[in-house]
Amino acid sequence: MSPRIRVVIAKPGLDGHDRGARVIARALRDAGMEVIYTGLRQTPEQIVSAALQEDADVIGLSILSGAHMHICPRVMALLAEQGLHDVLVVVGGIIPDVDIPKLREIGVRGIFLPGTPMQEIVDFIREHARTRVGAA
């Protein structure tokens, strides 16, 4: 059996609307992943440090407030600084169409808008998360 995929779910920025973050955290856990939910109002520094400490394969950011173009580049830069190039970064929330290509360009691989089925996110992570040492 392959080791479980480790996912840090984080809610950056000032927003407290955590329904999406909690529901997806639970769905990933029910799908057999190891899920660490950071809680609210995490800075990019705290999120990347959590990913490092938890040896995360995936970081899932939930952002509904419109601050994604500030938060995502910062997270990507900090990951690069830490040498965590193979951590898969996905974002869920309200992301205007015009920002989607910009986020992809900086390395956000999955962008999930309102109405995305949980299963689609589970499948995406299974397919794109880095292969762990010892995995088949």
Binding site: L14, D15, R41, T43, S65, G66, A67, H70, I71
Partner: peptide, 17 residues
């Protein structure tokens, strides 16, 4: 959100919000 959370626009957590 900065106003709702009692932060001025120049606070670090207000960045982008």
């Amino acid at each position: 959100l900065p106003t709702l959370m009692g932060r001025d626009p120049d606070h670090e957590l207000s960045l982008g919000e």
